[in-house]
């Protein structure tokens, strides 16, 4: 497949880097300011070198991406809330041109799922978004295999930063501010960790899951969201006395979306450590399935994008 990649952050760059290994050609790569495009395939290595050196990725404008002979648009620009622009506009433009769209950007499927599906049904192209939920963990494809109707709920940990902070607080008896600073030093938490610790990032992923289970109808404003900022070390200590711990847990069902700090058994499946993510898919006929792994990171998320591309063929 010929891929046009919008967004040259960690995920976009990794998709470009790994595409060849998965048997695909990259015909365009753009960041917010410039693009490199060539129907015969761009020189990925050179483009990534330019990006790493702080130069423009190419001499073209980002818009040029849409003029190439691409089969699938990889939308890996930063997630935005509400109108989910420009990610949503990019996806619309590709679908209107009867091309496929593979999203790493959560915005369009969390905030405007129904509109996106409507555009898809009028298009010869289709939309896939495995990378938006749980990074490398195959969550949506598992639900697709089980069929969404046979899945009653999805629960789990889908934010590595919050999980890292809670794990360290419990293990070291340190308070929230201290562990957050440590996480920032380690690069586990961003300079502005708001969306990770207030539950927004996890909520977007569980909203996407509810949309998949219920075939639409949800956006972030429908989710009940609490973060971990108000969880002190003493709460983790009390939980531990009872053989439990606290994790930022999300729940997606057809009825709604909820994210908040919850008590879980200390040695239970959902009490993963560090930045690890886990989902528990509750099925009608097959009990619960658990998948755990890396929920973020450039190459990890890129594998989910490229798996989606593979399913389009």
């Amino acid at each position: 497949m010929k891929l046009a990649i919008l967004g040259a952050g960690a995920v976009g760059r990794s998709v470009a880097d790994l595409a060849g290994e998965y048997g695909h050609d990259v015909v365009a790569l753009a960041d917010s300011k410039s693009a490199v495009a060539d129907d015969a395939g761009i020189d990925v290595e050179r483009a990534l070198e330019r990006k790493a050196g702080g130069e423009p990725v190419g001499s073209g404008a980002p818009e040029d991406v849409f003029e190439t002979d691409y089969d699938a648009l990889v939308e890996a620009t930063p997630t935005t809330l509400d109108d989910a622009k420009p990610g949503f506009s990019h996806a619309r433009r590709a679908l209107e041109a009867d091309r496929h769209v593979v999203l790493a950007n959560k915005g369009p499927v969390a905030e405007r799922y129904d509109e996106l599906r409507a555009l898809e049904s009028d298009s010869a192209g289709s939309v896939r978004f495995e990378a938006t939920v749980g990074g490398a963990i195959p969550v949506l494809s598992t639900i697709e295999d089980e069929t969404p109707q046979a899945v009653t709920a999805v629960r789990g940990v889908l934010n590595g930063t919050a999980n890292f902070i809670l794990t360290r607080m419990a293990a070291e008896g340190l308070d929230y501010e201290h562990v957050l600073a440590e996480a920032q030093d380690l690069g586990v938490a961003e300079a502005d960790p708001t969306f990770d610790v207030d539950g927004t990032d996890a909520a977007l992923k569980f909203v996407i899951l509810s949309n998949v289970l219920a075939d639409g109808g949800f956006s972030l404003s429908d989710a009940a969201v609490d973060g971990i900022q108000n969880v002190p070390g003493s709460a983790l200590d009390l939980a531990a006395e009872d053989g439990r711990t606290i994790r930022l847990i999300g729940e997606a069902t057809r009825e709604g979306v909820r994210v908040g700090p919850r008590l879980v058994p200390e040695n239970g499946a959902l009490a993963v450590s560090g930045t690890r993510n886990i989902v528990q898919i509750e099925t009608r006929h097959a009990g619960s399935l658990h998948s755990s792994g890396r929920g973020a990171g450039g190459p990890e998320t890129a594998t989910a994008v490229l798996s989606d591309v593979g399913r389009l063929e």
């Binding site: 709920a153 629960r155 609490d226 709460a235 939980a239 847990i249 879980v264 959902l270 528990q280 509750e282």
Partner: peptide, 12 residues
């Protein structure tokens, strides 16, 4: 007050 609830449902 912040209420940290147990996670009910599933196998956890």
């Amino acid at each position: 007050l912040t209420v940290v609830e147990p996670l009910l449902g599933g196998e956890t």
